[in-house]
Design a protein around this nucleic acid. Structure first.
Lengths: 203, 203
DNA sequence: CCTACCGATCGGTAGG
DNA sequence: CCTACCGATCGGTAGG
């Protein structure tokens, strides 16, 4: 709104780089000095875009949210409501993590663990993003139940908790152990929960 | 081994405080200045215990491992092998997270997300701890299968992945959303996986 | 957008 | 274990 329209694209590019750095080193590890060096501009020039370190951090969170919308949510929502949409949300998210759209894996996983115990605007922004994602999975599951594609005694919030747990743990294990098998484990767990298959004899 | 035996307990106390601070602010956010002020001793006096920031960080990881052994693993291993031991490991871990033995929730969750994309001795130490925990859950599940207390087609590594996912996600959601329900969701998911109950009509 | 700077804090050292 | 420092880097400002 109160903007520098001419610099809007430059600002977006700066924030995309900031999100890459923060996915590895965290939003505190994201310093004005390192970011300005990476971008090849002066520290005070960079600072002028944001006015404070905290505003840079908040703007980076908003930019990373856009990336997830583009990479995961918008494509998955092209699938009509039902269990296939839930599957697509999970599959897109796992691809987003696995292909390292951010070099440190999921941006939100990295920074939520950094701020989840530190009250302030960053924690609130991250909590809001997490609620929106959980809400989207929950309501997509509820639609699939209404359509008769999932068992009618399914608790959508409970199942959403479980699916998100599988996705986040795949991200975490694959990063820490350098073990891409974690994604196959998550896919198998998700397939079992959504496909009605009871046993583990899946593939 | 090559020790200052007289200072051993002081060192342990220092590291217990360091683990508390790091669970909230991370192992980078753990600075010699803040830790020395918290403890009421001089920065160089504190420094002398460790010789480098990285050694302080590594020693803090080892001290936090002891806490988990005392709070979670040793008590659970008093239960004989079988599904009740698996249940006890999960229940103890959830209590350890829920009661905020560390003020920032599970110490390892906080610092694994910090270092999982940053090669070096800290990432290796955390990866080793994570492998040991995953291995303990996996072998405890395998024992329960051998005892006929879990279905014989159970894949222990797969089930361990799923149980750990539920535990970590409960820790994460409870911290970020201030929502203790997350622990009930994890308990329900774990109960369903270990108790053979299919439906969600659990409590 | 830049150069040049500010006080505070960082990890670490000298010397006792 | 302490006081007193070191150079580097932090977020941020002055002035252009």
């Amino acid at each position: 709104m109160a903007g520098r329209p001419r610099n809007e694209q430059a600002r977006r590019d700066i924030l995309r780089t900031a999100a890459d750095l923060a996915s590895v080193d965290g939003l505190d590890g994201l310093t004005l000095g390192r970011l300005s060096t990476t971008l090849g501009l002066s520290k005070s020039g960079l600072f002028g875009y944001f006015g404070s370190k905290e505003e840079l951090q908040l703007a980076t969170v908003r930019r990373a949210t856009e990336v997830i919308l583009d990479e995961v949510i918008t494509p998955a929502l092209r699938i009509p409501p039902g269990v296939e949409r839930v599957r697509a949300l999970c599959a897109r998210w796992l691809d987003y993590s696995r292909t390292r759209v951010f070099p440190g894996g999921c941006f939100f996983f990295a920074v939520m663990a950094e701020f989840d115990a530190r009250p302030g605007p960053l924690r609130e922004a991250l909590a809001e993003g997490s609620r929106a994602w959980t809400g989207l999975i929950t309501s997509s599951i509820a639609e699939a139940v209404e359509l008769g594609e999932l068992a009618e005694d399914t608790d959508p919030a409970q199942l959403a908790f479980e699916l998100i747990a599988f996705m986040e743990n795949a991200n975490s294990v694959s990063l820490l152990q350098d073990d891409a098998d974690a994604y196959r484990r998550a896919e198998r767990a998700i397939g079992n929960r959504l496909g009605g298959r009871r046993s583990v004899i899946t593939d």
